[in-house]
């Protein structure tokens, strides 16, 4: 990985976020570690319920609580001053989830965009009001007028036509793609050093999806932000990321550079993911779905979590010993007993 040239922005160590429900405890994120580097992008991929969104929510401390709670681990955030000088390292998990410190990080250091542009904006307030609000929260000396000007400027940058007019539009007057652009404007208006995109194009048409992806990439480069891109779509994540983390049931299964994940996938789960998507270049083949279904989130297996669905499982070995995440090649980590 070429990451060493860039300085670390966020270091997540052994994050565990559990949900305590009446039916039992769901270990949504169970010991996840990774780092995000300045200006680089990390893709997170996995099926629904693999913990990818909860990981992102933990970094913002917006996991719905109760029932969710970050029970263990560290999320160290490297905060930089406006001028560029290094300020401090904060363990986000030690902060009060509604306290002033984490609120100064949300929206200012980390911007976040969500899956549902249709419901992510308040229907009762204008788009401009909701975007300018972020400026007013984080920049005490900004006037309402300045905040509004900034919102108009930002709306223009994310490609909204006639930003002077649409700044006063209500969300229901905008299309899904326009709303997602407005949400991006909202997330980026305070110039965060990291943008977390949690499946931002899942609810959009394919043509709009391409535009939004293009926009996010373009903004990432021009603003020099880091990007954490969460999706279940391999092609999209590959397009957006420098490195990819594959998650399954709260565990990181494989973590490598995008090239390695595409050219040299090692984990049986990653391979199975590849076989389940159509490719444009390859010859037309029948897609192979991953057999079985996700095990109950309440169940705890002694061995590998992918055991029941794995086509290379070794009975008696894989269901007895939990595999650990091992670096099998420089920058290429796999959690599988085949490589131990």
């Amino acid at each position: 990985m070429a990451a060493s040239e860039n300085s670390v922005l966020v270091e997540v160590q052994d994050l565990k976020t559990y949900f305590f429900l009446h039916e039992g405890t769901v270990k949504a994120v169970d010991g996840v570690s990774f780092s995000i580097y300045e200006g680089r992008s990390l893709g997170v991929i996995g099926e629904s319920g693999c913990g990818k969104s909860v990981t992102a929510q933990s970094m913002m401390r917006i996991v719905p609580s109760p029932p969710g709670r970050e029970v263990d681990g560290k999320i160290e955030m490297y905060l930089w001053e406006n001028g560029g000088g290094f300020a401090e390292v904060v363990d986000v998990l030690q902060l009060k989830p509604s306290g002033a410190k984490i609120r100064s990080i949300r929206g200012k250091q980390i911007g976040m965009i969500f899956q549902e542009p249709m419901t992510a904006l308040s229907p009762l307030h204008t788009v401009g009001n909701q975007i300018a609000e972020a400026v007013l929260i984080h920049e005490q000396d900004a006037s309402k007028h300045q905040a509004r000007e900034r919102a108009i400027d930002m709306l223009g940058r994310v490609g909204i036509p006639q930003p002077h007019r649409l700044v006063d539009a209500y969300p229901h007057q905008l299309s899904g793609g326009m709303r997602q652009r407005a949400l991006i404007a909202m997330a980026l208006i305070c110039g965060p050093s990291l943008l977390i995109a949690d499946e931002p194009t899942t609810a959009l048409d394919v043509t709009i999806e391409a535009q939004i992806l293009e926009l996010i990439k373009e903004l990432q480069t021009s603003l020099g932000m880091a990007l954490m891109y969460i999706s279940h779509d391999l092609a999209v994540v590959g397009e957006m990321s420098d490195e990819i983390m594959v998650m399954y049931l709260g565990h990181v299964m494989e973590h490598a550079s995008t090239d390695d994940i595409f050219d040299n996938p090692l984990h049986p789960y990653t391979l199975a993911l590849w076989r389940s998507v159509p490719s444009i270049e390859g010859k037309l083949e029948r897609l192979i779905p991953i057999s079985g279904s996700l095990p109950s989130p309440f169940a705890s297996q002694p061995g590998c979590r992918f055991f029941s669905r794995c086509d290379r499982r070794m009975p008696g070995v894989c269901d007895a010993t939990p595999p650990s995440l091992k670096e099998v090649a420089p920058g290429h980590k796999v959690r599988c007993l085949l490589y131990e």
Partner: peptide
Amino acid sequence: LNKQYVITARSKGLSEWKLVWKYPVRM
């Protein structure tokens, strides 16, 4: 309170008190 727009507002860094009064209470 669990709607997405509340989470969006929270992720902007708005304080809980202001957030509740401005968005979900109005609804």
